[in-house]
Design a protein around this nucleic acid. Sequence first.
DNA 1: ACAAATATTTAGATTTGTCTAAATTTATAT
DNA 2: ATATAAATTTAGACAAATCTAAATATTTGT
Lengths: 220, 220
Amino acid sequence: MTLSEEDYIKAIYHLGSGKEQPISTNAIAVQMETKPSSVTDMLKKLSGKNMVKYKKYKGVSLTEHGELTALSIIRKHRLWEVFLVDKLGFAWDEVHEVAEQLEHIKSDKLIDKLDTYLGNPRVDPHGDPIPSKEGEFKKSVKKLISELPLGSEGVCVGVNDSSAAFLKFLDKNGISLGDTLKILEKEDFDGSVSIEVNNKEMRISDQIASNLFLEVLEKN
Amino acid sequence: MTLSEEDYIKAIYHLGSGKEQPISTNAIAVQMETKPSSVTDMLKKLSGKNMVKYKKYKGVSLTEHGELTALSIIRKHRLWEVFLVDKLGFAWDEVHEVAEQLEHIKSDKLIDKLDTYLGNPRVDPHGDPIPSKEGEFKKSVKKLISELPLGSEGVCVGVNDSSAAFLKFLDKNGISLGDTLKILEKEDFDGSVSIEVNNKEMRISDQIASNLFLEVLEKN
DNA sequence: ACAAATATTTAGATTTGTCTAAATTTATAT
DNA sequence: ATATAAATTTAGACAAATCTAAATATTTGT
Ligand SMILES: [Mn+2]
Ligand SMILES: [Mn+2]
Ligand SMILES: [Mn+2]
Ligand SMILES: [Mn+2]
């Protein structure tokens, strides 16, 4: 697989291999920032390699083989993102471009050793799941802290209320997007929540809990 | 710069930009495992980018700009080699192929952070020097322990006497090729040498010292 | 000095991935 | 139901990197 083929496979996967309808040529062209005619050429090539099922004018979908290939590339991408953030100290929102290159490095041994070195992480710095070598993974969902049960653990990925005051509050309390957050306790009385972030425990009000999104792995 | 252009620049550098004679087309073809006609095409392209000085039939040499580019790629290659060995636990003789790919990743920030993370190493796992960001480095030479002065530090890179007995001795004493070795003391009387390897001190006979090669940085 | 050997370049193809412009198919709207 | 619009494919071109075969330049041996 060439670098370009790999990026197409990944794009098709992200455009929703989950869905039952095939992916359109134009959708892929938009995602890849290329022209539809280029996409058509590539789809023929990928079809010849049994990576996609392709019917002229009818769109495309990944084969079993194509999907496993996509998951293997996504695994590499996300493991490298963990490396960049956890080991090299990149910010969570700076890593994508570099991981986009690193994901194409060819070496099974490398990725095995990297996985071990990182402590077999289950999620990347954006809270997205890291597929296993066999292509298995739990889906992740983005939910407000207030909607999540006790014990949930996830990555802070966004705010509902993006007022200056709220962002300032988060900053003051040492909570940044990209941080991993765990829900320790929930108070029925006032909806306040005990959380752990950056090895610190703190209590946040219902107002805060209803405005901060976590990316968490779905149970089972 | 494309991946291929970078590999050519590096090949020309290694074929001896140090020398005063220009490098021949055929020499590059051998090094790159490609055909001389392909080399000619690439030399024209690199010449157009001011990376090399090229005269038809007269060979090629790197420009100042080309040499700095070569050193930057070599810096990346060797830093990644250190990462693979020190952090991921690759053996020193397994890293070249992967580093050959990793050296082409484009990100100044990445290589700066990697350098810091690795503790600004001066040499790679083969004892070869790692150029600074500015392209400065000390040359390295391969010498027998017996030829080196007190205080020398280098990487074990080879043996003079490759008899089974000698290799067995090294193995028994926990010395492997790729290990860093420091000369602590030299006994004039019998030529025996005190060394430190893998955080252990030991004394080796003149016979051993005269048969084990170290790759060391030249002083000044 | 000149023929033979060697090294290098040129000419013409090929593969990969891209593009534009034109043709064709599919969807939409009256 | 049919004309328009939108989506998709085809045709033909191009740049990058490679190759083979042929042409040309340089070196070497006598
Ligand atoms: Mn990519
Ligand atoms: Mn990610
Ligand atoms: Mn390389
Ligand atoms: Mn090396």
